[in-house]
Design a protein around this nucleic acid. Structure first.
Lengths: 204, 204, 204, 204
DNA sequence: TATGAATGAGTGTTCATTCAT
DNA sequence: AATGAATGAACACTCATTCAT
């Protein structure tokens, strides 16, 4: 709360933003502390006044990412709208959040990689587990109220989360894909399915 | 003057397998040439008799991966079965192939990361583009013959590819997820949708 | 924000001097970056703060050498003294310069070797060409004014340059030879010749 | 004397010739055993059946070079011609020998470098000392018989040797120089001098 | 607080040499 | 004798981290 704190916090943020831009541009592995310092317009040594290590920068980036996600998750948990609408809102919110901060989105590949085995204590898996839990719950509600098929469970939630992340992945690998326009197709496919609905009629 | 008993191809394969195991265990970035050599039970220098560089190992791993994918893609292109069945077969084939070679699957994160920014000429994006093309074509056929909704396009294909890869991702981040059992849920969601089919009736 | 007390130029010079000492002692090929760092009393990595590569060290040594040569050449070009005296001054200056910096002289062998085949852009040949040009010009002047035989050309200049460098070579291979005392013999031989002047008389 | 011996000797010679060609082309330091084996059209391991080590190849090249030199030296020592003619013959012989085996000449730089400090027991210095001794002796004889100035000593011999080697050096650094035509200019300069002979007359 | 010079552990790669065939 | 696959010591170079100023 002291002005110092605020300054310090702001400085830290600046550096983190610079780091995220650098990571987004060349990937974490290829990014040097020097690159981050240059991007932030400060000396290399100063980075260490705000972050313990190079890995800590990626950790902080993860935390920023996780915070955005928590916000989206909280909204999905709280809302009083019908469950399918909340699912729709969730999917839109995730993709909108990333569209609005493309640099943060572009480090997803690094976060996924770092979220493996020992290195960083960076729990991407836990984040996706939360998404699955929320969606599983919403699907259950939707099933209960008759707007979704009955008997839906975590695996179906996994598919929805997968569709979102898988579309992000394809966009990361090929930025020409219009990620911000993928929310509706994702929802269309997952909610309505691709099979012809008039099958019984057509089958006649 | 003897043709030398050594089968270069087989030796190369052995080393590549060792490399894939190492990469799967600790990730490409954290893997040292020495690790690969030890895993293969040979000297460090010998790796270079079969691969030009450390990167070349990841490249070769990609090629092995891409070869498997091509096989799956070719089958999806050739088959004479109804389009929705071929889509089903495709999804099953992809997940089965990776279940059967989990180490190859576990390097997906590295292949995705390497598929960025010039470093390696490793075209993961092109691979997914092929999946999208095949699926787009199959959806069009299905639409034409009435088994799928009309008007389906590449975006819907993108969602299916995304669902597959997104489920793989979740498994990679949390190996407790039963990836080999996700084919059916993926198909269930994507083909049938999650919404209640009797909606019109229920909607009154 | 302090301009840092470190004088980059001076530091660079220190390292270069250390490198020259090391090269002089064991030859460039046998000299390790670590040797240079140790000789300079700094860490290995610090060498790279001032030089791009090991080769760059030899390059810089060449430049130092070439700068000394340019100085000598410039003096030979400018002076208004009689041409034979300027040649004499040139020979003395070359040998004195090298006597005064024996370490710089001792890397001549490396500079000659490096001046071959593309590796380094280190133009020893050009340096000697300059010496030949200057001497050719001075011989022509001397011929015109009658102090030297008429009809002298570049080949005679080549012989003078050769005599200098060849004496240096013999000294480098056998340091017991008194290089600093060779200027007069070189001039004596080249100017006066070894043949007996009274040959016609003596020939009777 | 056994046919085996002869074969072995011939094989050794072939490999040495190949090595000399390779060294001449890229310099000893940049030459790999593999290069030599390829040039000789044999397997890498086979080189070691005839030479103990890579350095031994350069040593053998030196010995070949030294043998040629010994031949030239012997002729200079034996002949019964007037001393100045024998000096002339010596200079011509040295340059002719090298012109006729340019590859052997081109490794001079490497021989000079190797003839330094410890590494190889390769005595270039001793070779040049022999030339100096022979020339010193011939100059003394010439002085005694009145064809050369009296009072000539080892330093004058050093200059002659220097002129030869220095011209070779310039040719090695710039192959456009016509080394085979330098014998006469060298002799002209060293025997007749460059100064105008009619100085006393002109001085009047 | 801020800096950037200094460091040295770490690693990819090379290549002379060995040796089983 | 001949081979070339295998080896591992050696080394140039990088870069995260430290610390004196």
């Amino acid at each position: 709360m002291t002005p110092k704190r605020i300054d310090r916090q702001a400085r830290r943020e600046e550096i983190l933003d610079a780091a995220v831009r650098v990571f987004a541009r060349k990937g974490f592995t290829a990014s040097r502390i020097d690159d981050v310092a240059n991007e932030a317009g400060i000396g290399k040594g100063s980075v260490y006044l705000y972050f313990d290590s190079r890995d800590a920068l990626l950790n902080a980036a993860f935390e920023a990412f996780a915070a955005r996600s928590q916000h989206v998750l909280d909204q999905a948990r709280r809302g009083g709208d019908p469950p399918l609408e909340r699912i729709s809102a969730l999917v839109h919110a995730v993709l909108r959040a990333l569209s609005e901060e493309p640099d943060l989105a572009r480090i997803l590949l690094d976060l996924w990689s770092a979220g493996r085995e020992g290195d960083l204590p960076l729990d991407m898996a836990g984040l996706y587990a939360q998404y699955r839990t929320v969606l599983t719950e919403l699907l259950a509600q939707a099933g209960a109220e008759g707007s979704a098929r009955p008997g839906l469970g975590e695996r179906h939630a996994t598919v929805i989360v997968g569709a979102i992340e898988g579309c992000l992945l394809q966009w990361l690998l090929d930025p020409r894909l219009p990620v911000e326009e993928m929310a509706d197709p994702i929802l269309d496919v997952c909610l309505n399915g691709l099979r012809c609905r008039d099958e019984s009629q057509a089958g006649r």
